[in-house]
Amino acid sequence: MSDLRDLYQEVIFDHNRHPRNFGPLPGANRHADGFNALCGDKLSLNLKVEGGIIQEARFEGSGCAISTASASLMTEALKGRREAEVADLFEGFHRMVKGEPYTVEMGKLAVLAGVSEFPARVKCATLAWHTLNAALHQADQPVSTE
């Protein structure tokens, strides 16, 4: 039986109630929108990338606790990262929430590992990451993980 507390950890509640890096980002040079129509989760992600390094990442929108916390934790994890590292982190995060083995150091993002026990919620946890991917690849269509 999957334990709810594995999914809803204190860190996740904290980031849901007080999302970090929430709000507009003046001077952003990367942007993408994520929208899971069935859930109603909406996410707008802005990045400032200079010299191949993500200097700032901020998001706006509304969603469930998992998608909000995931976006909040992601923006924290992105600051100062090289753009080139992001693909590995994205891959590692994906594998983690799907319960597959991964080798990338996840740091605080590991609190979302419990999502793997709740397959219906993987799309909530990954929405921010797919939106990030779209922002870095300059996609102009909103992203969905449904």
Binding site: L4, C39, G40, S62, G63, C64, A120, R121
Partner: peptide, 20 residues
Amino acid sequence: HPHDIGTILDNEGVAIRSGH
């Protein structure tokens, strides 16, 4: 969020719909 309600209710054996 309704999706969080849906997951927690499901964990209690209660099936409801959450969404639009």
